[in-house]
Design a protein around this nucleic acid. Structure first.
Lengths: 151, 151
DNA sequence: AATGAAACCGTTCCGAT
DNA sequence: ATCGGAACGGTTTCATT
């Protein structure tokens, strides 16, 4: 993982379908060298996935909510984590320090659906309390920071 | 945006580099029809971006924190929104209802860096109070839900 | 690890339905 | 809007350094 790899990652972060031949022009390396570097980053798991970002307004899931969740006991964590993997409307979930144990991000199409989702989450085993925040504006959302740690 | 488009989106969400020829086999449509549908979804903005998900542990940004931020006055919103676009370590930001006006997700490499980031965010114009949560585990993180709204 | 050349395969364009 | 064919361009493999 040298500076060239980070350059390639940033290019792919901007456009995961950028061709190796264009990347090779941009970073002044041969096509085969670029492909070989990408292949290695896939193999070693540096690149975990290629994905798309869709316009949630246009796909009908324009409502976003953040729900803080606390569990009755840490023993419920595993089953909770399992359950939320299967719930499509939950797009992210973090286990965190603070008053609430977890925070989840929900993507849905209406406040009616949000209410239903709220009930579903509340009824998962071990869920103690929740606090819901409706997102008024999605100010920024990228997947991960790609910043080379000092040299 | 019919059921076939949603199928294509889901395939691309799993692998944005899936070839049109493979997609065409999976959904029983000709290669040119698949390409034409993708082209239209790009043009109309349904597909906003192709991107990669990297392993943050392997790229040296394995620390995640969530920071709630409140502003002294709503008039500071625009400048705050502008400022955080430029801050690479801030990967997401939501304007929300509740005690705090905003919540941001931070990706960094150490608690020392987090402390420095905390000071930087605190010193942005109009920032009133912050509350920071360290993420102990990233339980789930996909970009957006792709769910076809009832038929 | 990087390079260039050749074979291969996917994409793009186009005319037809 | 979909289809299949032909030309094009990108990828993959390999021998070489």
């Amino acid at each position: 993982m040298d500076a060239i790899d980070y350059k390639i990652l940033k290019i792919l972060q901007k456009n995961a379908r950028e061709t190796a031949s264009n990347i090779s022009k941009e970073i002044h390396l041969s096509v085969s060298a670029v492909i070989e570097r990408i292949r290695k980053m896939e193999e070693t798991g540096v690149i975990k996935e290629y994905t798309i970002i869709v316009d949630e307004k246009k796909t009908g899931n324009e409502m976003t909510a953040l729900m803080e969740v606390s569990l009755e006991h840490p023993k419920f964590f595993d089953s909770f984590a399992d359950a939320i993997q299967k719930l499509e409307y939950i797009v992210s979930c973090y286990y965190q320090t603070g008053d609430f144990d977890l925070i989840i991000r929900i993507s849905c199409h209406s406040s009616d659906e949000l209410e239903e989702i709220h009930r579903q989450v509340m009824s998962l085993p071990g869920v103690d309390a929740t606090r819901t925040h409706v997102v008024l504006k999605n100010v920024k959302n990228i997947y991960s920071a790609i910043r080379r740690p000092d040299k």
